[in-house]
Design a binder for these strands. Structure first.
Lengths: 229, 229
DNA sequence: ACCTGAACACCGTTCAAGT
DNA sequence: ACCTGAACACCGTTCAAGT
């Protein structure tokens, strides 16, 4: 067994690159949360001292920007050719999916960076272009843009705080939180849980498309030449 | 000048209480941001060693829960007597105002804690009660609740990332970001800035009530006995 | 009962030194 | 060119010791 210098770790050689550092950081954040992503812990994952990472990443802010851009680029980019409603709908649902796979992404994309994150700029540009092509005035585009992004990012942060991961768990968890709840102090919450949330057919995830469609319906009235309600 | 033991600080005696600790923490977070709020820095503000704080606060998580509850309690609590639309509107605008005075609050209120933050429970209970009294079914109440909170919290996190604080600064800042923007790569963003954002009358803050009213209009159709559109 | 000093196990980051 | 060890200035928190 001549192993020589590369003896102390199973995967010794593959040289560090920015790409490899960012991928490992995404893995770590997905598995253990963003707060577990420290330079030292990330170094361990790559069988390297923390200081080596600084050869591929300027600092921690650059690392976070890098993973936000990489994961943010997975979100569907709307085009100007199809109808605006289908495109905005598809983009919103894609963002919801990406944010639910990587719960740390939405927060990082919202963080103010200088320069701005390319994935965000591409999204902004594509959304504005799609709405303009769909018949929205400049002012209406600004309205629609702000409303949609508030909803999408708001959903992401609400979802990230949910105590359950799948709809199967909703029932038992609702029962558990109901047991701890001072029912006389919060009667309306108690009623909501017993008569709605705990019922079999309930799915919190369905709320997303409901709200999204309500917003899209409302925005439709804003377009040039839209029939007044 | 007989000053004796209390010589090394201007405000020496007022004994530490949980209230005083929380107030000082809110001040510090407002002035320098949540990331500046460490136990050691907070101790300094109160002319006390960091370890003394643990006599009034279980740990840092408890401190954060405490300031979230205190600031969150400033948000208007909707009643069941007035009409649902006015109440929901007033509550949303109040939340927007509180979140804009204390940009760190919305994030803390969204954080999952066990037990839940009382201010949040009171809000949830009041909102559900108001909507139910306003003629919303259980399912419609869940829809409305989710949509409104996504929008309100989404707005807060979008606003927290804005690079400007007042509407006066919008113009110059838009010009500055336009100068750095690769215009051929992001033509629609460039157009939006030059032809809308940079124009004198534009106010990002106005977008909040626009989106809010669009959502309230949509929700109005959900009520029992609402006229079908 | 409340406050403190020293200590522990962590952070991000710099810098001189190694290969 | 890339990686490392030691060091610095920070964290939250525990614990024995002071008053």
């Amino acid at each position: 067994m001549a192993r020589g210098a590369e003896r102390h770790n199973a995967r010794p050689r593959a040289p560090l690159t920015r790409e490899r550092v960012l991928r490992a950081a995404i893995d770590l954040a997905d598995r253990e949360g963003l707060e577990a992503l420290s330079m030292r812990r990330l170094g361990q994952q790559l069988s390297v001292e923390a200081m080596s990472l600084y050869n591929h990443v300027a600092n921690k802010a650059d690392l976070l920007l890098g993973i936000a851009d990489l994961a943010g680029s997975e979100i569907y980019l709307p085009s100007t050719v199809d109808d605006w409603r289908a495109e905005m709908r598809r983009r919103a649902i894609s963002a919801r999916d990406v944010f639910s796979h990587h719960p740390w992404v939405s927060g990082l994309l919202e963080a103010q960076t200088d320069p701005p994150i390319p994935a965000t700029l591409r999204q902004h540009n594509a959304v504005i272009g799609c709405l303009r092509a769909g018949g929205f005035s400049m002012a209406a585009t600004a309205h629609a843009f702000s409303l949609l992004d508030c909803y999408i990012y708001g959903w992401a942060s609400q979802e990230a705080t949910l105590p359950f991961e799948t709809d199967d768990e909703v029932g038992e968890l609702a029962a558990a939180s109901l047991a701890q709840l001072p029912r006389d102090e919060y009667p309306h919450i108690a009623e909501m849980i017993t008569e709605h949330t705990m019922k079999p057919g309930y799915s919190y995830a369905d709320e997303f498309e409901f709200g999204l469609d309500l917003i899209l319906d409302g925005l439709d009235n804003l377009r040039d030449g839209a029939s007044a309600s």
